[in-house]
Amino acid sequence: MKEFFQSPKIKIFLSVLLVLIMLSVFTRNVENNIISTSFNTLTYGMSKVTAAASSDSSSNLSYDELKKENEELKTANRDLRSRLVDYYEVKEENTRLWMFYELKKEHEDYALIPATVLRRDTNDEFGSFTIDKGTDSAITVGDPVMGENGLIGWISEADVYTAKVVTILSPQTSIGAIDKATGDNGIITGSAKYADDNLTMLSKLTSENKIKKGDIITSSGASGIYPKGMVLGEVIEIGYDTYDTSNYAVIKPYDDISSVLNVAVISDFEGQGEILKKESGD
């Protein structure tokens, strides 16, 4: 308050006020009106100045408090953003889990690890891609990979946080398969001839096979690498390979492998590796 009255503006105001008071005492009524008007105008203007000065004084006095409050708000905003990111990650994870809920219900022995496609190998014509889960999530090389509608590949490489998936469109793939309608057996393997059209092949069929268009092909589970009964696709064409003199069927997977975004890795299932153990004598 002492600083307020020592302000130059206040001193000027008080001086002018004193002069006006003296004039009002020694002048006539008409002049008093003029002076009164001038006085009111001046006091109104000065009141604005003093109010502003008072406000500035208040702001200066609360600067530290305002600064502290601002820092607290910044901290709260950072925390809120972090919580929001966590929320979206959990929401996305739950979405992926729900995609494979029915699969888990039908196969309680499956250990499913939902994952998202990080990037695709543009140099691979067979659609291989990298997912955002790796050995840190218990994923190992050879694990089957599911799309929303069926088996679409397997883990070919894995590091701590990512893994590479080779698809059923690739010639690197070899999955024992069976026709659910006829019981005919064959091997699912990819071919450059069909990969661009999101198609694969059921090869090594006998000449007596009864496979027909529309039949559903599933994994046989014979090797112990893939679970039995996983859907691989539907027969759309029957052919004969003159090179190795065998019959084959063209299979259309139920997932568009080139655009799949969410997958589930089967890291464990009942009977996994049993055939391999028997063959190695373990």
Rank of each mutant, 00 (worst) to 15 (best):
M1Y: 08
E3F: 04
F5H: 11
Q6W: 08
S7F: 00
K11Q: 14
L14W: 15
V16L: 10
L17N: 07
V19Q: 08
M22P: 05
M22A: 11
L23N: 05
V25S: 04
V25W: 06
T27I: 02
N29M: 01
N33L: 02
I35M: 00
S38T: 01
N40Q: 11
L42F: 10
T43H: 10
Y44V: 15
M46P: 05
V49D: 03
S59Q: 11
L61I: 10
Y63D: 01
D64S: 06
E71R: 12
K74L: 12
T75G: 00
T75I: 02
D79Q: 15
R83E: 04
R83G: 01
R83C: 03
Y87P: 03
Y88R: 05
Y88Q: 08
E89W: 01
K91P: 02
N94H: 00
T95R: 02
F100A: 03
E102I: 12
H107D: 05
D109N: 14
A111G: 08
P114C: 03
R119E: 00
G127N: 10
G134D: 11
D136F: 05
A138C: 04
I139E: 13
T140G: 12
D143E: 09
V145Y: 05
V145P: 00
G147D: 08
G150V: 10
G153Y: 06
Y161C: 14
Y161M: 13
T167W: 07
S174Y: 00
D179R: 04
A181L: 14
T182G: 13
D184W: 00
G190I: 11
Y194Q: 11
N198H: 13
L202R: 10
K204P: 00
L205Q: 09
T206M: 07
N209C: 11
N209P: 10
K212Y: 03
G214N: 04
I216D: 15
I217H: 13
G221Y: 06
S223A: 05
G224S: 14
G224K: 15
I225F: 02
P227W: 12
I236L: 15
I238M: 15
G239D: 12
Y243T: 00
D244G: 03
T245K: 08
T245P: 07
S246A: 03
A249I: 02
A249W: 12
A249Q: 12
K252Q: 14
K252Y: 04
Y254C: 07
D256E: 01
S258F: 15
S258W: 15
V260I: 07
E270V: 08
G271L: 11
Q272A: 07
G273H: 10
E274A: 14
E279F: 11
S280T: 10
